[in-house]
Design a protein around this nucleic acid. Sequence first.
DNA 1: CGTCAGTTTGACCTAGTTCAAGGCCAGTGG
DNA 2: CCACTGGCCTTGAACTAGGTCAAACTGACG
Lengths: 265, 265
Amino acid sequence: MAESKRSSRPLTGARAVTSNHTSQHALARKLEAIFDITVHERIAINSLPFHVRDYAPNTDIARERDRPSQCCVVLRGVACRYKLIDNGRRQILSVHYEGDIPDLQSLHLEVMDHNFGTLTAARLGFLPHTTIRAFLRDHPRLGEALWRDTMVEGSIFREWMVGLGTRSAFARMAHFLCETVVRQRAAAIVDANGKNVPMPFTQSDMAQALGLSLVHVNRTIRALRTRGLATVTRSSIVVGDWDGLRTAGDFDPAYLHLRIHEAVD
Amino acid sequence: MAESKRSSRPLTGARAVTSNHTSQHALARKLEAIFDITVHERIAINSLPFHVRDYAPNTDIARERDRPSQCCVVLRGVACRYKLIDNGRRQILSVHYEGDIPDLQSLHLEVMDHNFGTLTAARLGFLPHTTIRAFLRDHPRLGEALWRDTMVEGSIFREWMVGLGTRSAFARMAHFLCETVVRQRAAAIVDANGKNVPMPFTQSDMAQALGLSLVHVNRTIRALRTRGLATVTRSSIVVGDWDGLRTAGDFDPAYLHLRIHEAVD
DNA sequence: CGTCAGTTTGACCTAGTTCAAGGCCAGTGG
DNA sequence: CCACTGGCCTTGAACTAGGTCAAACTGACG
């Protein structure tokens, strides 16, 4: 328990950076993964005036009870949302890759009901709510796209609930690895069918996401390796037997509601 | 495991009923609980042409992989969403009271990623997607209200994840009872400060929502009674010590994002 | 070459599960 | 009016998945 040497000053460690970087296309790519976007709309998205900043790992961006006036897009790295519990435990609620908008909800829910911060070093692009609202007025279809994104997010929450509520540690971990692989493919962080994907999480992060103890995460990873399903190190996931992993985790990517269902070999 | 004598024919046991019943005001009441609605908008909501039907308990309305062409509102009774797992277990993902729109997501997510059915006998009001879309074109602010509802739902999922991932059975149950009380108050099923509220769930339902075994749910309920926090029977929840219950469950209603924070004595 | 974050392993322990058997009560049919 | 049934609740006893505690190991970095 009680890890978290998370930096306590939200914006500490952040460096402002010139806007309109290529990584900015992340948002358009993400929305295209779940929604049909016109060329015109893509251009509009790509010229959104983000305020870009870089963050160190494990840095909080927003806290429970905050009332943010802006939303942000992950342009690089991995962020997460989490809650801190009475008993000192931390539950990671979601992880966010390039193109995700982790705090979109602040657009309609005034006060934060959870915390939100980086897991790895990350680059984030910020947009004031006022800008977003004006943008959605001009592009109503993109409002639908974002609403759909909120719904997909809900779907992912539900699948995680299933894992936490009913799956064994082994299945939960297998499922989590499958999701990590597929989502990084969808975010074009690795190419489809790549079996060697970056591993952005520490074992402690995974423990907090999966509702397991750190020790048991370690043992579960070993079990996965022993059975030849996957080899997980600090830096990468190497899938040894995709079919076996998918079966072990009872993984069906339907809940991600991706438009393109890549044929995962 | 392996309970569920859920009726297998979705519409079996359903009786069509004349529309425009008073219970139809449930939707407006619900939306007002989370959003600021004008008089004009309320009138519009209340004259929505629902197709009303009654259902027996434990009846499925929609199934995983279905592609619904309509959404429904709970007008009376309690519904839930759930997933069935490989190993025969069932995870209840959410419960829905009067005024809730449990399958709103079908408006933007073509295929169901979970099942949805009644828990108690229930009356539901149906509206085709086409009608809803036209309605939202005429009342764009209500689109925001529904989007907000989707976000509140996400917030509730997150809180449930915290329970499943980090809380003891005792705390989980206490939290669940607090939520059940507050939500039934918000839905005006009981008046604020009422400490004796209807209990719409069997112990088996609760086990499936909380990720516990039926036996342990039973024991947890007994523990709650022994400590004087709450007495739970098939028909009602009688809160003995609201403050104690809230503390035991680490319950903070902020995640429900209700506009009116009733002073829960 | 010391430090620190993260990983690994062993030994022991407990919260919650599983199995099994009754008990209660409302509804049904004789 | 009574016996019977089926759904739900209750309790005990034995078991196990996963947690906790404690210590050591590894590798990156200054």
